[in-house]
Nucleic acid binder design. Structure first.
Lengths: 213, 213
DNA sequence: AGGTGTTTGAAACACTTGTTTGACATGGCG
DNA sequence: CGCCATGTCAAACAAGTGTTTCAAACACCT
């Protein structure tokens, strides 16, 4: 079952360790021990701990983001003015499908990617920003079509709230306080979309002036 | 300006270091260096790194949560059926006020507490769960009054989404991608409330069965 | 078989980690 | 003054960190 290829085995183990303990908390030796390889092989195959993290992250996030864009294209092809619900569904389903399709490893990957968003270390946030810039821009543009009444600035702000929710959803997965049953992605998706769509569609906020009569 | 008391100086420095690098990423020596004290003094005053984290966390979170409950009581006293907006405002304002009132340190504390929510390490999540159990229960009960049409189970789920948003808001503060201007808590609060209130009030999700005809 | 480039292995590198120790200074009190 | 608790300090502790080295093993090709 486990891949014979050492590179792949290292990535599998790194995924687990980074998910469980974060970038600093995970040690290369715990990774190599779990992967059944020598410590040196990490530097041989990847170059450094940071490079290993990037590789681990990319292996998870890239296909998910590609699937996101694919589903978004599908929505845009079907609806000339896309609904918020369709856009949000295209945004979250690739994550949920990943989790559902991979069993235990799905939970690990969810935690890992959710966690990576909130890593304080520059290293991680730089990688994440890289990986998500295109997806962010495309979905923001789609949302601007779907919710024309809200300024793009506030929409961008709201999109980040949506990302925050997904991050949290993923990060909690595989812990004692998981937010959804990985087998039931329909209701997880429905709950998410119901909440987030209403939030995105809300009338633009009107900050009351600091002192109002 | 800086407190002369060593305990306080250590807590100040720990706050900064934990916020910037997380629990594992921050080293005791970087804390003591910043605080201008000896390494041993951390163990003298607190006992261990973990105990230092707990103390740092409690010093921030406790007063904020007390203020949350105070503002919630105020809302409940004024409105017999509280509005979602009022509840949400009571929930987020103590955070924003903290940030606004404390300048740089506010941003640090925001990042620190936001970050702590997503620490993978058991250590941190245990402390957080402790500190938030009462607030969570009280606000959930209030929301159940305000949104009677949504089941308490789904409401609990949505409340966690709200917490996710706040966490993210706080964690991004003090970084290059801060989500709001600390001086303008009015519009930050308005944006948050507009988004979250709409989400909370959304009609209950109706997960269609996995296979529907 | 011999030679080539690619992977592995054990060991060491220099350094940092959290924690402990014991000597030293300080300050209040009888 | 001596006494004792309270802090502080440099130094050391053992263990663990990411990274490097270099020889041995391997796989593959002519």
């Amino acid at each position: 079952m486990r891949p014979v290829d050492a590179t792949e085995r290292i990535l599998d183990a790194a995924e687990r360790e980074f998910a469980a303990h974060g970038f600093h908390g995970a040690s290369l030796r715990s990774v190599t021990r779990a992967a059944g390889v020598n410590v040196a092989s990490i530097h041989y195959h990847f170059g450094s701990k940071e490079a290993l993290l990037r590789a681990t992250l990319e292996r998870i996030v890239r296909p998910v983001n590609e699937e996101r864009l694919r589903q978004l294209d599908e929505v845009l092809a079907l609806e000339q003015v896309p609904s918020v619900e369709s856009i949000l569904t295209a945004f979250i389903r690739p994550d949920l499908e990943l989790i559902a399709g991979l069993g235990d490893r799905g939970a690990i990957m969810a935690r890992f990617s959710g966690r990576s968003y909130t890593e304080p270390e520059e290293v991680v946030s730089r990688i994440i920003t890289d990986l998500f810039s295109e997806v962010g821009a495309r979905f923001l543009a789609a949302l601007a079509l779907a919710v024309p009444d809200v300024s793009e600035d506030e929409l961008r702000w709201r999109l980040r709230c949506v990302v925050a929710i997904i991050t949290y959803l993923l990060a909690a997965q595989g812990t004692a306080r998981a937010l959804f049953d990985p087998c039931d992605i329909e209701s997880a998706s429905a709950r998410f979309v119901a909440f987030a769509a209403a939030g995105l569609r809300a009338p633009a906020s009107i900050p009351r002036p600091a002192n109002r009569l």
